[in-house]
């Protein structure tokens, strides 16, 4: 094997240069030329300020915002993560129960509306899942409508206009980007809520 070390070393050096330097640099060059926005993280700016990335969930707690899926990583985009709780995990069940209680407290008539969409009370795989299913978004509509004082119908229109269908009508699941929804909500002309404070805040 000693005799093999010289060609082995040379091969390692040469292949490192090719696959470890030339290849990523070539891809980077092409990417910057062809897809500059995506190559730099699909960042979203508002008023010249980076407010996030369309691909990365951020935490929303205000009643007037759509809330994304729970994050085991607390929406830290420099430290993605999941709960990794198994299905018979006591902590998982406790966590889900706590989220259900919180959602019921924050959303008017939640208890009366039957079971809660599972994705609203389970943590996503990345902790940065930017999407909700249209159903889970609409489930939050009464709360947001109340908080913002806008009709639910307007929210429904907003959600359906921002809903992305399956790719080619086949692949993936229908979904709506929470950051995009909230950017759109924040862009609406402010309406002073009519009546009482939204419950649970």
């Amino acid at each position: 094997m000693l005799k093999e070390l010289k060609p082995a070393l040379m091969m390692l050096v040469v292949l490192t240069i090719i696959t470890g330097a030339l290849y990523p640099l070539a891809v980077s060059g092409l990417a910057w030329a062809l897809f500059p926005t995506q190559a730099h993280g699909s960042l979203v700016t508002r008023d010249g300020e980076v407010v996030g990335s369309t691909l990365i969930a951020q935490g929303f707690t205000e009643p007037g915002h759509f809330q994304p899926r729970p994050s085991a990583a607390d929406y830290k985009a420099e430290a993605s993560g999941a709960s990794n709780y198994g299905p018979t995990s006591g902590p998982l069940i406790d966590q889900v129960k706590a989220r259900i209680d919180a959602l019921r407290a924050a959303n008017p008539d939640a208890a009366a509306r039957g079971p809660i969409p599972v994705e609203l009370v389970t943590a996503s795989g990345s902790g940065l899942d930017p999407h909700l299913s249209p159903g889970a978004a609409l489930w939050q509509a009464p709360r947001i409508a109340a908080a913002r004082g806008i009709p639910e119908a307007q929210l429904r229109t907003l959600v359906s206009s921002l809903t992305e269908g399956r790719t080619l009508g086949l692949f993936g699941e229908p979904r709506v980007n929470v950051l995009a929804l909230n950017l759109a909500l924040d862009a609406l002309p402010a309406v002073v809520p009519d009546g009482a404070e939204p419950p649970g805040t």
Binding site: R69, P115, I116, P117, V118, T122, G125, D129, E173, R175
Partner: peptide, 17 residues
């Protein structure tokens, strides 16, 4: 606990998938 039984096992999964 009160979760909709039609959604499947979504803990640790992403909505787009």
């Amino acid at each position: 606990a009160g979760v909709d039984g039609l959604g499947g096992n979504m803990e640790g999964k992403e909505v787009r998938f």
